[in-house]
């Protein structure tokens, strides 16, 4: 099995998760705030830790385009948040142990926090109070952290069963 199948499967994953998120009506109470978890940031963290920078940026671009086309926000409002966060994670990933749960959780948390905060900044809803935004972003980022751990575990097992090595990003393979 060739490694380029990984980005392709991640694209399929983005489409499936986005469809799921668009039809999800349930809101979860996380520490007193009702939120609907964002499913994409955690998958993009996985992409940033698995494929090389250009491929990860392409995936981020694709995810942002799809996300914005289903959202009421401006088209392109998610592009900068996603691509900036992916660039940061691709730059720092060599110093992290990808397979550690703490790394996965913290990466999901930080990525979610950054991406969601930037998304809010670009959506142009400044009348909303900072404290409320911070409360919501923190909870969504925590959800993103947990989702990142789940994605890393499930997708790594899946790719290894396919005979691929998802952790081998240093060699410049796609």
């Amino acid at each position: 099995m060739h490694r380029p199948i990984i980005p392709f499967l991640l694209v399929v994953g983005i489409i499936l998760l986005l469809s799921l998120q668009c039809t999800l009506t349930h809101r979860w109470d996380v520490w007193g705030v009702e939120v609907r978890p964002e499913l994409l940031p955690a998958l993009l963290v996985y992409a940033a830790f698995t494929v090389n920078l250009p491929t990860a940026l392409l995936l981020g671009f694709f995810a942002a385009v799809m996300y914005d086309s289903f959202s009421g926000g401006n088209f392109g409002a998610s592009m900068i948040p996603y691509m900036a966060s992916i660039s940061i994670f691709c730059a720092v990933r060599p110093v992290f142990f990808r397979n550690r749960i703490t790394t996965q959780f913290l990466s999901g948390f930080v990525f979610g926090f950054l991406a969601l905060l930037l998304q809010w900044a670009f959506c142009g809803k400044f009348p909303v109070h900072w404290a409320e935004v911070f409360r919501k972003v923190t909870r969504l980022a925590v959800c993103s952290g947990f989702l990142a751990v789940i994605y890393f575990t499930v997708l790594d097992i899946f790719f290894r069963l396919m005979g691929l090595n998802p952790g081998r990003f240093e060699d410049g393979a796609p």
């Binding site: 964002e38 996300y67 959202s71 009421g72 926000g73």
Partner: peptide
């Protein structure tokens, strides 16, 4: 047929 994926917007399709 669909809801806004974003937590910042409240729209439906």
């Amino acid at each position: 047929i669909g809801r806004d994926p974003s937590n910042w917007w409240n729209t439906v399709q």
